[in-house]
Amino acid sequence: MTQSERFLDVKDLKVDYMTLDGPFRAVKGVDLHINRGEVLGLAGESGCGKSTIAYALMRLHRPPAFIAGGDITVDGEDVLAFDEETLAQWRWSKVSLVFQSAMNALNPVLTIFEQFRDVYHRHTGKSTEEARARAVELMELVGIDPVRLDDYPHQLSGGMRQRVVLANALILEPQMIIMDEPTTALDVVVQREILQEIAGLQKKFGFSILFITHDLALMSQFADRIAIMLKGEIVEVNSAHEILHNPQHDYTKQLWDAMPSFEDAEGVA
């Protein structure tokens, strides 16, 4: 594997939160990489630091959280060396982010179109007409009738909102999308619909994905490789197939066992 195949390369990343009792290290020297067009799953329970990594990759941390050490290289560029202006332009155009709760990611007092327009205008400086054309294109891409562009977020169903958030992440054609539990707040059927949508878009555009979830079963349906995180450290990284059929670390096995599956019969009276 040559260096240039790697789109994202993280080395010895450390993230601290300042607390009254001194710094708390949430991410304890993590190494990971994502190749171009690859889907990497990151799994672990709440508080293990997986979302902290997602925020660190986009340098979204605000005090009391700060990156205490390590290197983040995206497409050959040192992300930690960017100044504020470069960072603002870089975010979303190179790497975008999809949050867990679509309702919180969308501004409730702006229409769907206005949310698209804001991002588009800020980054490209193009006119409202051009933004409208791009927004229509994106809505069709994720399977929503473009007439809904003038609706407010509360007028859409949970699944549609998540599609809008996905479309918004695609607006500047980024090369990587970080997805922080993109389907967790959804029903199983809608979850499957969104996952299918993400997989289709990924195939079409070939971007890389960092897919964060606590649902290992869901992740192994979709990810190429999976990293398992425990208490700020990555304890196992392997292909999705190996994580499923041949988990090495005790914690990985524990995560598999924690989920009742249809094969379990012990609970049924």
Binding site: G200, L201, L218, Q221
Partner: peptide, 15 residues
Amino acid sequence: PNAHTRINADFEHAR
């Protein structure tokens, strides 16, 4: 979600 079946990632049939 069933860990043993990969989802079909073909864009034309994604929906």
